[in-house]
């Protein structure tokens, strides 16, 4: 009796998980299939791989500057991620290792920024950019997202696991504060860096509102803007569109799968708090 109950429980669990797995994956499988079919076949509801991949690709690159947009997106996201990791990890370390009352209070004030919606600040930033010539620039893209409380918090929380004794010992050995940070802290915090970099890279790569606002030049466009533009016409070439969606999504998929394990590890430290 108990055994049948156990097996029914098992089966129900697997059915629920399989059901949601399929729901989540199906639209993406459909994208992959659609990218290989002609628009006419996609509309007809074909669910098998077609032979139009090369044709879709030709249409795509003849109509849109796919690789230009890809390069821009790579550039903006990579620079954002690198700068954010440096700025936020050193700040998170600073807030934790040298913490005192004033710094703790300051952190509390910074936490308030989590409540500030970006739509409330984007218009003044846009105006300032227009004044200082920061529109259509990489610097302009990265500035609002390289220092976030979320990332500083991630590093601050994870710094708690970093033993103070080691820092004291290194100081006695005459190591500089910056040396301790770069030589000892950075190498031991790989998982945290992986988690932070994954999130930052994905957010930057997938950013749309901000890019659309400040990147008005065709040569500064991102992949998200390119895809969005493809749907504005009257006739939509679904094959080409889905190929573009696929190409623009692959990098984030690769980054995530490459860093999946350390992502979860780094996040665990942060949410445990």
């Amino acid at each position: 009796m108990n055994k049948t109950k156990y097996w029914i429980g098992r089966a129900v669990k697997n059915i629920i998980l399989a059901f949601f797995s399929i729901l989540c994956v199906f639209p993406l499988i459909w994208v992959v299939i659609a990218a290989t079919n002609s628009s006419v076949d996609i509309v007809r509801g074909v669910l098998t791989f077609g032979s139009h991949l090369a044709e879709n690709y030709q249409t795509l690159i003849s109509k849109y500057d796919l690789w230009g947009a890809t390069w821009n997106t790579v550039k903006y996201s990579a620079v954002t991620t690198i700068v954010a990791m440096i700025v936020c990890s050193i700040a998170g370390y600073g807030f934790e290792v040298y913490h005192d009352k004033v710094k703790d209070k300051l952190f509390g004030v910074l936490m308030l920024t989590m409540m500030i919606p970006f739509v409330a600040t984007m218009l003044p930033i846009y105006q300032t950019y227009a004044k200082f010539g920061l529109l259509n620039t990489t610097l302009g893209f990265i500035l609002p997202s390289v220092s976030t409380v979320f990332l500083i918090m991630l590093f601050r929380q994870n710094s708690r696991n970093f033993p103070m004794d080691i820092i004291e010992a290194a100081r006695i050995d005459g190591e500089t504060e910056l040396g301790i940070f770069f030589k000892m802290y950075v190498p031991t915090m790989k998982a945290t860096y992986a988690a932070g970099a994954t999130i930052t890279f994905m957010n930057a790569w997938n950013n749309y509102m901000w890019a659309r606002l400040i990147m008005s030049d065709n040569s500064a466009q991102t992949l998200r803007m390119l895809i969005s533009n493809m749907t504005t016409g009257h006739y939509i070439d679904y094959g080409m569109l889905m190929l573009a969606v696929l190409i623009s999504t692959l990098p984030t998929l690769i980054v995530f799968f490459a860093l999946q394990k350390s992502f979860v590890e780094g996040m665990t430290g942060a949410v445990k708090g």
Binding site: L17, L28, N206, Y208, R224, I227, T249, L253
Partner: peptide, 12 residues
């Protein structure tokens, strides 16, 4: 499978 959509952008 369940996580994969998170890697897709809102626009896509």
């Amino acid at each position: 499978c369940i996580f994969v959509p998170a890697a897709v952008s809102m626009v896509a």
